[in-house]
Amino acid sequence: MQIEGLDHLVLTVRDLDRTVAFYTDVLGMRREVGPTGRVSLHFGRQKINLHLAAHEFQPCAADPTPGSADLCLLVGSSVAAVCRELAGKDVPVVDGPVQRTGAAGPLLSVYIRDPDGNLIELSHYQHHVPGLIDRPISR
């Protein structure tokens, strides 16, 4: 078996509306509702499915807990631009900008929290990553 990528992940949340507002208004994701009523957040070619705590779709994680995730999301703009945008939306930065190492090399990252307390790392590769983004990364 060879894993080729990540299609989606699931977040268990306390308040669907509050979570959707954060991910759409702050992070620019797109909300969709599937035929079963399941709410998801779409970005690029990936999505985040949302489970309401104590009402998870089955099967689910053994111990679905709001606020237990730590996600790294790649951004196409510089971390400085991301920080300005976050400040404009009154979203506090938990840490950063800091250097980190991603799957394809060095990153510059800034950390925030979503409404459930999940840690969201917003990262920008310090070099062009072929196949990741069609254009060179801005600094």
Score class of each variant (00 low, 15 high):
R45H: 07
T24C: 14
L122M: 04
I120Y: 04
R38V: 11
N118C: 05
F22N: 05
Y125A: 05
A53H: 15
H128P: 00
S123F: 04
R84V: 09
S77P: 01
P59K: 11
V33F: 02
H127Y: 05
S77A: 12
A87K: 13
G44H: 08
P35M: 10
L41S: 02
V10P: 02
P106C: 02
L73E: 11
T24P: 09
G88W: 10
C72H: 09
N118F: 07
R113N: 13
P130C: 12
L11C: 05
K47G: 03
A103E: 13
L108R: 15
V79T: 12
L9M: 15
A81V: 12
H42G: 01
R139Q: 14
P59A: 10
P106G: 02
G131R: 09
S123R: 03
F22A: 03
H128K: 00
S68V: 10
K47M: 13
L119Q: 15
V98N: 00
P59Y: 11
A21K: 14
C83L: 08
G28P: 02
E56P: 01
T101R: 08
I133W: 15
H127S: 13
L74K: 05
Y111D: 08
V129S: 07
S123I: 04
R139T: 10
T36N: 10
R14F: 02
G102K: 07
L86P: 01
A54G: 07
D15H: 13
L6K: 01
L108W: 01
P97K: 03
M1F: 07
G44E: 12
L122S: 03
E85Q: 10
A53W: 15
A69V: 01
K47I: 00
T36A: 13
I137A: 13
S123C: 06
L86R: 08
F57T: 15
L108Y: 01
Q2F: 02
V110H: 11
H8A: 03
V33E: 02
V93W: 14
H124D: 01
R135Y: 11
H8D: 03
C83V: 06
R14T: 14
A61D: 11
D90H: 15
A81M: 12
G88K: 10
T19L: 03
L50M: 00
F22S: 04
A87D: 15
L119T: 15
